[in-house]
Amino acid sequence: MSHLTGLAPSDLPSELRFLQYPSSKESTYLPAIRQLISNDLSEPYSICVYRYFLYQWGDLCFMALDADDKLIGVVISKLEAHRGGPMRGYIAMLAVREEYRGKGIATRLVRMAIDIMIERDADEIALETEVTNTAAMKLYERLGFLRSKRLHRYYLNGNSAFRFVLYIKESAATLRYEDYDPELPPSA
């Protein structure tokens, strides 16, 4: 799905708060989350997509808020058995407000999601990013992700994607499962 970010792990602005998405406060946060993520999408996800993730895996969604509780960044993800095989964490969306990019906020958000996934016994974590999104690719590669395949014309705009995968456990390599189709029908 979409990864809209720039990054350099420098100093995180101290006024930022990082918190897990509280499902009880959908009306407070969801409009801002949608706004932030759909900024760069030509075709936005419907509310169903957000609820699909947030209702089932709200605890794998993390937000960065500034002192005025304005949403600065967000990561949305899920974790479930992938086609009857390994427990696969999936980072679906990541976005940081443009003027806050390059401060390590995205890395922090992703790491918070990954930490919980590991706690919950993830075997591996996967995601897709546009082949031209160098900032996102650098972010994930620094965390140890590798490109596992290229997905031709994956996005609606005709751009291709890389699938990135991070093995958490050795067993991930030996678990047999169908792994050859894109996880997600993409947007944007």
Partner: peptide
Amino acid sequence: FPYSNGSLRYALR
């Protein structure tokens, strides 16, 4: 790497 090591990366590759 915070979450990975050479062996895991090699296994994936």
